[in-house]
Amino acid sequence: MKKRVLYIVLLWLFADAYFFNAVTTLTANPIWHWVYWSADILIATGVITIIFGRRGSEPPRAISWLMGLMLLSAVPKILGMPVLLIEDITRLFRGFPPRSVWVSELALVVAAIPFFGLLFGLTRGRHHYQIHKHTLYFPDLPEAFDGFTLTQLSDIHAGSFSDAKGVNKGIDMVNAQNSDLILFTGDMVNNKASEMTPWINDFARLQAPYGKYSVLGNHDYGDYVKWESEAVKDANLVSLKGVHKQIGFRLLLDEAVEIEKDGQTITLIGVENWGKGGFHKYGDLEKAVAKVDDSQVKILMSHDPSHWEAKTLNHLKHIHLTLSGHTHGMQFGIELFGFKWSPVKYVYKQWAGLYKQKDRYLYVNRGFGFIGLKGRVGIWPEITVLTLKKG
């Protein structure tokens, strides 16, 4: 982790040095040169000091702000660098004449576009909720559930919230969908159950006529902080399970329940967190589906989308739809005109939106909250609305 941060800082400072050519071409004023370098050196020093000097297991809040400032500085320069690089290639064959002023101006304009996009994301993006609607067709869906709607939330991360107005804006948007069922796919907190205490009454306002159900995510177990003892850690998890109940969610722990409408049923399954790599594999899908009739339409809530290809997709019992979260879309990327990209795609094959294989669906929610980076850039917080149709 520390090595990766150091490499990122070094890459950023290299981009700083190269982009500085555009600044010196446009102005010889030493004050602007001093401003350019002093801000970035202060940010880089702060990041390195916190990462390499901190003693606790929980990262301080300052690192979130410094990460945001680092992105705000680095990304525009990296994206503006190709303009300077193209000119340098031509200068190589022209005997290295002085850099053109208009090219440096163009590089600044190109850098300004992502700068203001990042600025919006870091200041307003954390509550820039987007509603994603999809209609899913199932030939064996009971007639009573034709048109049945689900609203999925994921990754609340209450420990990161500070703006009650912003949070309640999202909650109001959820209720405005008037969905039949609300499903929450894990990571209610960053680490501790107490993080949710100020927000219990707000999230208790969520309403759905056929109920509210939830599962746990990797952050809910308290695995990322040091505890006085295992007993204290266990007590925290018990307390968090109680918070789900206070909010009105029925927490599913490797179990299944039937949702009934007009005498017909579909099955909702919830497993504990099951993640790839270094993430804990608490969930037990076999236990959860042991008593489920295979003729039922089945919807699975499983926090980590890697569970889908690893266990769910080829399971003997046909699981029609899996709902996941976890990735947040890395809270950074591009989604425009059907194009979708984020660095997290190189870690998770399924990282945001709807996927389908073998007549089985996976939906990966981009997350309601945020963690680490205090904002979202391009990958906005999500409220998912899925309509089930027979066909």
Rank of each mutant, 00 (worst) to 15 (best):
V103D: 05
S160W: 00
W199C: 00
E143C: 03
A352T: 15
K192R: 13
E255H: 05
K169F: 12
P305H: 06
T197S: 14
Y7S: 10
S64Y: 05
G170F: 02
N29M: 03
F145R: 08
D155T: 06
V110Y: 00
I86Y: 14
I334Q: 12
D294Q: 13
K287P: 02
Y361Q: 01
G80I: 00
Y361K: 02
L181D: 02
K226A: 13
G147C: 01
H303C: 06
E228W: 06
K349M: 13
I131M: 11
S306F: 05
L251I: 03
I171W: 00
H320V: 01
R54P: 00
P114H: 08
R61V: 13
E195F: 12
Q264T: 07
D180Y: 04
Y36R: 01
K77V: 01
R54S: 09
K287Q: 14
V189Q: 06
R126M: 12
R55H: 13
A111H: 04
D262K: 14
H219D: 04
K226S: 14
V103A: 08
G217F: 11
L354G: 06
F145E: 06
G372T: 07
S214N: 13
S295Y: 03
W102P: 03
G222Q: 03
G391L: 12
E382F: 02
R250S: 15
G170Q: 03
Y346L: 14
L240H: 02
E272G: 05
Q264C: 05
I156L: 15
N191C: 06
G270E: 04
H33S: 01
L122A: 05
F96R: 10
T45E: 03
L106T: 14
V83W: 01
R61T: 07
H280K: 10
W37V: 10
G211Y: 02
S57Y: 09
P343G: 04
H307E: 10
G242S: 14
V238S: 08
P30M: 01
P60N: 07
H303I: 07
D140K: 15
G275K: 04
M330P: 01
M173H: 03
M67P: 00
I266T: 02
R250D: 14
S214I: 12
F368I: 11
R94L: 10
Y363M: 11
K349R: 15
G338T: 10
K317W: 10
H326M: 09
K349L: 08
Q177A: 06
G367M: 11
S229C: 10
V238K: 15
S214R: 04
V364F: 09
N201G: 09
F14R: 04
G121W: 08
R55W: 04
E260G: 04
G56R: 14
F52D: 00
V103L: 09
R376K: 07
F337L: 15
S194Q: 11
F138V: 02
V347F: 14
M330Q: 12
L362A: 11
G186R: 06
L183N: 07
I200Q: 07
